[in-house]
Simulated scan of single mutants.
Amino acid sequence: MKTVKHIFILLLTIFAVSCGVSEEGDGSYPAKVKISGKLNDLPDGTKVVLYTIQRVGGKKNVAETTTDASGKFTLKYTVPKIGLYTLNIGNQAEELLVLEGKDLTVANAKVGYKISGSKENEQLTELKQMYDKYSEKGNVLQQEYASSENKEEVLKKFQALQTEQKVAVEEMLGKLNGAYVSLVALNFIQDKDGSFDAISKSIEKLEQNFPQDSLVMEVAKAYNAKKATVVGAEAIDISLPSPEGKTVTLSSLRGKYVMIDFWASWCRPCRMENPNVLRAYNHYKSKGFEVYGVSIDRDTEAWKQAIEQDHITWSQVHDAGGVVAAEYGVEGIPFTLLLDKEGKIIAKNLRGDDLDKKLAELLGK
């Protein structure tokens, strides 16, 4: 089933079994709940399995039952705290659901199954439908792109669809008003920088509604790190050792345009970009441009060897434990931030010609 397959893959990347207090229930946990239904076209003895979604190991079987000859089943489970689960039916369909202190009903739907019995799951159904809607529109455009002679025109349609989806998800986040399923909706946002205001408001609501929930705290921590790199924010100061063991601070470069460059010797895209950075650095350093390279190498010698091999002459420091990278919300490298003379972020991830164009705009050719 397309909806659940794609949503489930998204969730496995960050979701864990977690705790909180539901707005709907009385907050009394553990809570005994029943999930029941009468499903069509299933053979007697079809297995129905409830899984928790976990960060490590994917998912875990926590309860199971089987259908009778008429397709009826009842599954009982004691919910420790509100959380995200999946219900696997006959190994053919897997539905995402929210479990809290409420009994749920499963019924046949046009596609897959519908789970009802709580506001959270009604909202989740709406999210799934929205996800399917934009997935199918995207699939149609992919087919059109493959056969089109005017691919630029189709790319414009893709961009328009992305904008439409962005607006729809932001509106949905506002409507959810901090419901637990907001965690699912947040995964639908591709341009997190572009939707940061909507994301921040949603996370603030989640933290108010579920202050002790480990997943909410984890997601909030990740987005707070991203907040540190939003264009317009003042860059967090960095103080790390150079190859010679001397401490070099980012703030020591104030008064210049500075590019923070997170990289590593083992990162092929980083190494491929280094010649472009070197060219820009050599051209603009006399005009007030500096690069502050932050290596996340664990192997100090490999880092030093890469510096020599790539003819790097700009400031280099070593973030061996990845502490600074975590503070900056770095999820992948290369990752760069361009700062103005006051240390404020003015651009992100400029590479190749884009970096040259921006520097020419700021410092002249």
Rank of each mutant, 00 (worst) to 15 (best):
E290A: 04
V230L: 15
L250E: 11
K341V: 13
K246Q: 15
H318F: 13
H283C: 05
V248S: 09
N274L: 03
S286Y: 11
I345E: 05
K226I: 11
G321Y: 13
L337C: 04
V231P: 00
M259C: 03
G232S: 01
D261L: 08
C267N: 10
M272I: 14
K287C: 11
A325W: 09
S286M: 07
S286Q: 13
L215Q: 10
L215C: 02
I307R: 05
K344E: 09
V277K: 03
R268L: 14
M217L: 15
T336M: 12
Y223Q: 11
A233N: 14
N276I: 06
P211M: 05
E342S: 14
E301I: 06
V216D: 08
C267Q: 09
Y223F: 15
D237I: 07
R279Q: 15
E290G: 00
D261N: 13
V219F: 02
V277M: 13
E331Q: 14
I307C: 04
D299L: 08
G332F: 10
Y284Q: 09
E234V: 12
V248E: 14
V317Y: 07
N209E: 01
K227C: 01
P275N: 04
Y328Q: 03
K287T: 12
V216N: 06
W263H: 05
I307G: 05
Q316S: 10
A222F: 10
T313P: 06
Q316A: 08
Q305P: 04
V291E: 07
G232F: 00
F262M: 00
L240I: 09
G332H: 09
Y281R: 10
T313W: 12
K256E: 14
K344A: 10
V323H: 13
A228C: 04
Y284P: 03
K246G: 05
V230Q: 15
A347Q: 09
G232C: 02
D261S: 09
S295W: 07
P334Q: 01
V317E: 07
A347I: 08
G343I: 03
L206K: 01
F210P: 00
V330H: 04
I236F: 13
A306L: 01
S252G: 07
F210Y: 15
K304T: 05
N274D: 10
A264H: 10
L350Q: 04
A306M: 02
I345F: 06
M272Y: 15
V216C: 08
G322N: 10
Q212C: 06
T249N: 15
D237E: 09
L350N: 03
G322V: 06
V323A: 15
R271W: 11
I346Q: 02
D261Q: 08
I260G: 09
E273P: 07
Y292E: 08
K226P: 03
Q316L: 08
T313M: 12
G293C: 04
G332D: 11
G245Y: 04
A325G: 12
A235M: 12
Y257R: 07
Y257P: 01
F335E: 15
E308A: 13
K226T: 10
H283Y: 14
I345W: 06
Q316K: 08
Y223T: 05
Q305W: 08
V294A: 01
N209I: 00
I312W: 00
I307S: 03
P334A: 02
P241T: 09
Y223V: 05
G288M: 02
F335M: 11
A264G: 14
V294I: 14
C267E: 10
S242W: 02
I260T: 08
N349R: 01
I333P: 01
P334R: 00
R279P: 00
